[in-house]
């Protein structure tokens, strides 16, 4: 007896139903709320009663003196993180690849992966202590060799670099996973042949290892393009303060303060929409590129 496909597919629809409902309410629901960006939104009137004001919120926010700086900070911090976040894991995996002592390799990996799993609340708590200008470990060490103390988190010139450095600290170890996986795919016969030809270790790295992982490097850098407006809310929010707003304030923290501190819901939604829309465009193009050049698909 032949059961029609419609009937056979029914359980599959049923399985998807709960997840679909959650996604519709909690992910697509807020997308409806984006309408606020075009309203003079008031909580009492609600989404359906507030007055429509077209692009006024956008015009207003782009006329604010801080907005251009915030966008500049966001891009600058994000790009620096993207570059550092690409180079550090690659260098680290090349180093790890040279290690033959398995136990040593394992210990190093265990240590450097750990910060990835701790939240920015915990890590910021640690950094506030360690980077403190008066009693922090780093400044004590600097002072002991005669370098003047630096207020890393309270100095607008230093702050973006502290963000990049601490982000590398959190993620560079875990970032090696992809490259280490790619390294296992390199044919060992290539190295044997190279040794026969008298290639040094450095030459082997340069001529075999690096080209071997190049496709993954290209893929990872392409995919990271989608993050140009993601400077890392969790990290910045837990480390910044009004003294470093000029170089450390980013779009996400700006939205937070406009919306949930100043209660300018419409304006904050407009900034958020600007960020999401540009990000969507970037992600779509980076995935498009990755698909075309690396034949990469996530599902």
């Amino acid at each position: 007896m032949r059961i029609p496909q419609r009937v056979r597919e029914l359980p599959l629809h049923l399985m998807l139903l709960p997840g679909l409902l959650f996604v519709l309410v909690f992910s697509y629901g807020p997308m409806v709320g984006i309408a606020m960006a075009f309203q003079k939104f008031s909580v009492t009137k609600g989404l359906f009663g507030s007055d429509w004001i077209g692009m006024d919120n956008f015009r207003y926010v782009f006329s604010l003196p801080n907005t251009a700086g915030v966008i500049r900070n966001t891009i600058l911090i994000a790009v620096m993180k993207m570059v550092a976040g690409l180079i550090a894991p690659i260098a680290m995996s090349l180093l790890l690849n040279e290690v033959r002592l398995r136990s040593f390799k394992r210990i190093v990996q265990t240590v450097v992966y750990l910060p990835h799993f701790l939240s920015w609340v915990i890590l910021s708590g640690i950094l506030l202590d360690v980077l403190s200008p008066t009693s922090g470990l780093l400044n004590d060490a600097l002072a002991s060799v005669g370098i003047p103390r630096v207020n890393f988190l309270g100095n607008e010139r230093w702050f973006p670099f502290v963000l990049v450095g601490t982000d590398v600290w959190k993620e560079f170890g875990f970032g090696t996973i992809v490259y280490l996986a790619a390294l296992t795919g390199i044919n060992p016969a290539l190295y044997e042949a190279a040794v026969m030809d008298g290639a040094s270790r450095w030459q082997q790295t340069l001529r075999i290892t690096l080209p071997g992982i190049l496709p993954v490097v290209v893929l990872m850098s392409t995919l990271s393009l989608g993050n140009i407006l993601n400077a890392g809310f969790d990290q910045v929010f837990n480390l910044y303060g009004p003294v470093v707003y000029s170089t450390g304030d980013i779009l996400d923290t700006y939205v937070y303060r406009l919306g949930l501190v100043d209660f300018q819901f419409g304006v904050a939604t407009a900034v958020g929409l600007f960020k999401s829309a540009v990000s969507l465009l970037l992600i779509a193009s980076s995935y498009g590129l990755a698909y075309r050049f690396a034949n990469y698909r996530i599902f």
Partner: peptide, 20 residues
Amino acid sequence: VWVFVFTMLFSGGLIPSYIL
């Protein structure tokens, strides 16, 4: 798949989520 994956690419943002 697209209905689900789209939520990873785009979101309503902080304020609409809070209001919801």
